[in-house]
């Protein structure tokens, strides 16, 4: 357990010290800002009967950040260490493979959540300017953040796996993005399977990230996406551990 915390601290230290992570957060802030501005312009002077977050998730900017940030954050985790050779120093210290993978996953997830901090900043700014009947309610905001964290868990774990498979950061990012976008696009099959009753329609509905997010932004926390995301994350992290371990028996 102790090596895990030492490594989490080290990874977070890397994120805190690297210029690239500030650029990532600033880019996320810019994209989310664009999304909010477009919303404010569209709804200025009009009535809304849903909290602003509920409308916001529907914009492309929200998904852009959700899909792009994890590969950018995770691509370095293993690929960079392999490329520079520090992976060898790390793995010959008395630490378990699982501790290393979990620590890297945890740190990346924490940083991913930091990337979403601008959302709160944007909400704060909006609240500042609309003091009366402000279109925000903290509970749906909390469930939205929960959804962002759950989806992020899956995507960060996917990025970890991609990064563990290769020593090229670019390749890791491309791989994670390709897999992630594919998973996201499954949501759009929802329209074509519609209200079908066979098992494939049920699977599509079960893995449809759009539907999950729809629920979360409305303040509805369903146990199904909860279980889906947590189990998928655990499965991906487990695969990553096995990939890292495979060096010792391949």
């Amino acid at each position: 357990m102790r090596p895990y915390f030492i490594l989490v601290r080290r990874e977070l230290g890397w994120y805190a010290g690297a210029l690239s992570s500030y650029v990532t957060v600033a880019a996320a802030q810019f994209l989310l800002g664009l999304g909010f501005i477009s919303l404010l312009e569209a709804f200025n002077g009009e009535a809304l009967n849903a909290p602003l977050t509920e409308v916001f998730y529907d914009t492309m900017y929200f998904w852009l950040v959700l899909l792009l940030a994890p590969p950018v954050i995770t691509m370095r985790l293993f690929a960079q260490e392999r490329a520079t050779g520090t992976f060898e120093t790390l793995m010959t210290a008395p630490v378990g493979d699982a501790a290393v993978v979990l620590a890297k996953f945890t740190a990346a997830l924490v940083f991913y959540l930091v990337t979403w901090a601008p959302l709160l900043l944007c909400l704060g700014v909006v609240r500042q300017y609309i003091p009366e009947h402000h279109p925000l309610e903290w509970r749906p905001v909390a469930s939205t953040l929960l959804g962002i964290a759950l989806l992020g868990g899956v995507y960060v774990a996917l990025g970890c796996l991609a990064s563990a498979l290769t020593r090229s950061q670019i390749l890791a990012a491309v791989l994670a993005l390709a897999l992630g976008v594919t998973l996201f696009l499954v949501s759009f099959l929802r329209a074509s399977v519609g209200a079908g009753t066979d098992w494939s329609a049920a699977v599509v509905r079960h893995v449809s990230l759009l539907s999950h997010m729809e629920d979360f932004v409305r303040g509805v926390v369903d146990t199904r996406p909860l279980v889906f995301h947590l189990s998928l994350t655990a499965w991906l992290v487990f695969l990553t551990v096995k990939v890292v371990e495979s060096r010792r028996w391949k």
Partner: peptide, 14 residues
């Protein structure tokens, strides 16, 4: 996931 899909609850945070 199969079990979760069959037995679920929806909590309303509004």
């Amino acid at each position: 996931n199969y079990l979760a899909a069959r037995h679920y609850r929806r909590l309303h945070w509004t």
